[in-house]
Design a protein around this nucleic acid. Sequence first.
DNA 1: GTCTATAGTGCGATAGAC
DNA 2: GTCTATCGCACTATAGAC
Lengths: 232, 232
Amino acid sequence: MMETLPVSFTLAQFRRVTPVDESNIWSFVLDRNADRINVKRRGPALENLEKIFVATFHLANTVGFRAMTLRDLCRETGLSMGGLYGYIQSKDQLAAMIEDAVRQMSEQMRTWFLHVQSPVDQVECLLRAFIYSSEILQPWLYFVFLESRALPAEQRKVAKEAELRFHSQIAVLIEATGKFSSDAAFLLASHCMAFVQDWYVKRWKYHAARIGVDEFADSAVRLIRSHIDPRA
Amino acid sequence: MMETLPVSFTLAQFRRVTPVDESNIWSFVLDRNADRINVKRRGPALENLEKIFVATFHLANTVGFRAMTLRDLCRETGLSMGGLYGYIQSKDQLAAMIEDAVRQMSEQMRTWFLHVQSPVDQVECLLRAFIYSSEILQPWLYFVFLESRALPAEQRKVAKEAELRFHSQIAVLIEATGKFSSDAAFLLASHCMAFVQDWYVKRWKYHAARIGVDEFADSAVRLIRSHIDPRA
DNA sequence: GTCTATAGTGCGATAGAC
DNA sequence: GTCTATCGCACTATAGAC
């Protein structure tokens, strides 16, 4: 399904092929949590889910999830405490729904570029896909990044493993260039992950400097390519 | 004072010249907050300050500062609620003391390598100094990174400005190589900051892979040098 | 200088009306 | 399906004994 993309694709090109974006993610979340949500009419349920998650991101991403109260959430969504509890089972489970959605999406991404021949090109594709996904779903990734340590231990472990799988996928590709030891490849893969995280965590910095996501992705790709590309 | 260091110094070499480390930082904190701390005998005050901050890092860095209760803090320090309030004026002010200490130390670092001639060498020095400082004071930087959004707006602004000053110092040096536009230099400086933050935020990952700070610093320096060094 | 005890506040969650 | 009202609890901060 990604065959139509060039190696150095842009955000606009990525948008045409990615299955999840800002607008259809609410259906995705509703379906994955259908059994836990007591509201059966789909239309209002989608509307309220969006209100709840958008307000959660706004509150949690400014003061922190634990500092956000359900009363704050009610004020910002317009729902009452009772109404809110038709959509969530507990405050903690609200965080768990977000973490689950992010993990599902990043797991899907891992398979998208297996057909790309050159390892270096595959690194570029994964790096771009990860950066553009983080642009589209910034509040989701920002939330998981900052709040995952407050999740229950079992869930925190799952989140760490997801990061390590993605990380080692990139490390294996870098090692496949034949220029690096296993440790050096691990470190370079870490640096790639750090680029992406910086994009969605420090967004205020790039916004203030009027730097867009394509420019950022080009810079990150250029830096890592100039180091690992055998042609260089 | 840094003249004795080579450009590619190690953590062990850095330790010999840095003014603040894990053991003398408590005096530094006590002096900067002397007027707000009601305990006058210096010996016990230093001991209890260390207990309070170490426990705060342990609790806040696992569940988050807002989720940490002062009762947790009392249990872990062995102090009572009343005793604790001899050292802090409020829970929020405890976070403010940490943020203040970190900012003071990173401000000092900015002046250490002004005598280094080559801009590329100066970037390496700053990057290494920042990485090694973050190794020595990891809990402090980790706390500020994850909790600064929960600080009062005024203090959050000061923290952002401190990051931008450091960032633009590196960007100016990269631009001075003559190979990059102002935007490209800004982006490369961002990537440098991202390396450092990754080291103290994702420490569990590097620890699990048995990668030490010198190896990490070498990798980050190698990656950025291979891109900006005019000799390359 | 540190303790115990408690005042006062605001929380997450639920019951039951409509 | 959403509301209002309320329960029981845990919190920050302080007062006063030693």
